[in-house]
Write a protein that binds this DNA or RNA. Structure first.
Lengths: 195, 195
DNA sequence: TTCATTTGATACATTAAAGTATCACATGAA
DNA sequence: TTCATGTGATACTTTAATGTATCAAATGAA
């Protein structure tokens, strides 16, 4: 599978773009929930022919690699504007959670063990997201938004997983999309202890 | 692969038992982290020959099904004695977390999307663990250990994921095994807000 | 309506992993 | 030490998924 070369007459390049994006989005979701899903299952989810996958991606492996790159790009696009706002750590956390929960598939995709193969040339992307969360967690500690005696790696890991859990729970229809970011924030900061 | 039939002369049945348990434990861990791992990778992790897998399990599919059954059994064995103690919900939570964190692989295995196939005859086991957590969450609410206005499914999902996150973080060597249950409990009840 | 381009269905080829069989070596209870 | 049994290595077969090629149908901009 490979991306079509540009021709001098482009009659429906938007259609190709739409098809490719649809495949990437659906593939991301399917593989986030089931890394063993076949190309046939991905094609069905994306409502395209299996042959169409090969028109855009050279192989299953390349599809997955592009999913990783795309996931990282999406997460970067979503979080960079927030960082550039130079908000307080607390407000940054809130904005982060709002944009990251809907991106749960992209989120989880980068953390999948399946992708941790050497020589794929995209290893660093795996760590990007956890680095983003560590940086944020450091700022939260520095600004005393969170406790200072909890290991940083634990704080970042919990935030990571809360965001993914919210995404899955929304996908399962168990909580409303609008409620999800608030639940993540509440759980992360306050826990569930009855007051 | 299939379990050997009993013969009238059993010279080293314990060895078989040890081999089978080793395979199950290592397979559980490997597949919890990478559901796409091959039988070769599982065999290597378990330090057995690939042919040995087929001496105990008829097929990859049957191995996985037995992992699910074994995971559920382990979780049931670990949690039933706690329930039978009739402790307060708060103390039950603490005991649950202590025994479930080390079983993170078993834990996560049951929640894996990969296994949600109809007709496997073990679908109900997938829900057992979340049911256990929901029952516990309900008691926590009833005894006012946790807030009463948070959706039950969210409380259970977060507890579920905190336990698994702890298991992975210990496995990665980022937190000490002894610290893990305490961190889970603290995060679940108090969150990270600086006081 | 036209028609250039995109796509789905499907037949076929290839490949990687699963599954089987066999034999020599390893193990450990007796 | 013996030797029945368990196991690893490996060759081979089977299978399921990947990957390729082709053609008719679908699509949608012009």
């Amino acid at each position: 599978m490979e991306e079509s070369t540009n021709s001098s007459v482009i009659r429906d390049n938007n259609r190709q773009k739409r098809t490719r994006e649809k495949v990437i989005n659906l593939a991301m979701q399917v593989l986030a929930k089931n890394p063993t899903a076949s190309l046939n299952e991905i094609a069905e989810a994306a409502e395209v022919g299996r042959a169409t996958l090969f028109r855009y991606f050279k192989s299953r492996k390349q599809l997955i690699q592009e999913l990783v790159v795309e996931a990282d790009r999406k997460l970067e696009d979503a979080t960079r504007p927030i960082i550039e706002k130079n908000l307080s750590a607390r407000d940054t956390l809130e904005e982060f959670v709002k944009v990251l929960v809907p991106l749960g598939a992209s989120f989880h995709f980068l953390n999948s063990e399946q992708l941790h193969s050497e020589g794929s040339g995209i290893e660093d992307l795996y760590r990007n997201q956890l680095v983003r969360l560590k940086v944020l967690s450091k700022r939260l500690r520095a600004e005393k938004v969170v406790a200072t005696d909890i290991p940083l790696v634990w704080i970042a890991a919990v935030l990571d997983n809360l965001i993914y859990t919210a995404w899955v729970t929304v996908l399962d229809g168990d909580i409303a999309p609008n409620d999800a970011p608030g639940l993540v924030l509440f759980s992360f900061l306050n826990g569930f202890a009855h007051l």
